[in-house]
Design a binder for these strands. Structure first.
Lengths: 242, 242
DNA sequence: CGGGGGTTTGAGTCCGTTCAAAATACGTGG
DNA sequence: CCACGTATTTTGAACGGACTCAAACCCCCG
């Protein structure tokens, strides 16, 4: 049952997981980490695969070790929105775990993703023996709710402002800062995805993006984005003059 | 320190609170209810008064005993949205309690409201000695997040659909069903408030409302609303034919 | 090299906004 | 109880941003 150091399984031990410090799990004890290790599954999802499906019953929690996933929600008329992106260290599925019922959205791997799956019963066990964990997830849920409500307020703003916001948010997650202060990143998103993130259509995303490019705020090539300077783009998210 | 039965203070004891069964507090023990009773404050807010302000630091939790309050969020450009209505039995302020920081929205009494205020430190104490309570609030937060995400999907629908949804939701909360199957209610909301709930302008609300009235789906007189039959209105929230 | 999906551009239309004015309800003081 | 002033509600007309539909373009991959 013990793995040789450096073996494949050894690499995917929660204890070694670099993401643990910033995840919701940072507070649990050594014993519980061992428990987690015994009961979790580790899976690889290739780009395009579903990690879970909207409408499925809750299977447990999903902890992303590496890769990027999109959380997408669809209604019966076929409208689709992209609620958020999840990357390494993010835990998925806890909303449904706590509220009960079925997943309200699907998780889809945008790149190859390595994911740990923690079965529902194991989460139950961890939670009952570790009250601080519930508090930790309550904080997480509260902060998700905060950004959801923040997002609602932005819905009334113009597409240009919303896309500027999006670019700055993507920069936070994927961007690298060059020596001259400019930012560069590659997004794992199609135009359709970006449209679903800001609540508009792909055509409008394109038009707005090239408009921003024409104004010199960003430079765009396929999925590669450069922001030469932050301030002008931040200004674009502010007051719009008539 | 003991109050005569029937005294004013006696009437506002948590133990007697009719809302307790359906509130987040339903699970706590008798001792803890007594604790709650000793440490809570009971206040009356008249219509128009703020219960708390967006930007204020978290003072604790607010438990509405009677009356209706609006949770409103404003950005620095002056845009205002009405996130939700809270009525008797609802607890307010727990999002901020768990996430920390400052209130992300204001709570404003739309009618006279009687409210219990539970100071932060008392909530801390209750939570630490009662792990099930944290779980209870996690469920609440998860369910709030669910409806927030559900609401996001609706943002892309037409105003007519969104207002039809709103009317049906208001019916759930305020409506009374007549013998002939029709529903009647008075909303504590101005047109401005309704506009802020569906993310549009008062003028558009009015036009849509009178459009629905012309189609015989509802009948409206100031703040009094009659829904003669539910089904046609439910249909109006569904697929729109081109 | 030849599909095929994603991307880009174009033109027309419509829904909702904006600005403005009229009508109606409401509170206040005479 | 009525007159008045103010705020809210309602109606009107014009504008504009984003959507729709459609065609052209361009990568990527077989």
């Amino acid at each position: 049952m013990t793995d040789a150091p450096g073996s494949r399984r050894e690499l995917h031990r929660c204890f070694n997981c670099l993401n643990r410090a910033q995840s919701a799990w940072c507070a649990i004890s050594g014993d519980d980490i061992a428990f987690l290790d015994r009961h979790k599954l580790n899976r690889l999802y290739s780009a395009g695969q579903n990690i879970f499906f909207q409408g499925d019953p809750c299977q447990g929690l999903f902890c992303i070790e590496s890769g990027t996933a999109a959380i997408k929600k669809t209604d019966d008329q076929g409208n689709e929105i992209l609620l958020r992106l999840s990357t390494g260290g993010d835990t998925l599925g806890y909303r449904t775990y706590f509220a009960g019922g079925h997943y309200g959205a699907s998780a889809i791997a945008l790149e190859d993703c390595r994911v740990c799956i923690i079965p529902k019963v194991s989460v139950d066990a961890l939670l009952s023996r570790n009250p601080a964990l519930a508090l930790r997830f309550a904080q997480r849920l509260a902060s998700d709710l905060e950004s959801a409500e923040e997002h609602k307020l932005q819905a009334s703003l113009s597409v240009r402002v919303r896309i500027s916001h999006l670019l700055l948010a993507l920069k936070e997650r994927f961007g690298v800062r060059a020596a001259d202060g400019s930012w560069f990143f590659t997004v794992p998103l199609s135009r359709q995805d970006m449209a679903a993130m800001v609540g508009t259509r792909p055509e409008t995303v394109i038009r707005t993006l090239s408009e921003l490019e024409a104004d010199g705020l960003v430079s765009i090539n396929r999925r590669q984005i450069t922001i030469p300077a932050l301030d002008p783009l931040i200004d674009a998210t502010g007051i719009e003059q008539p």
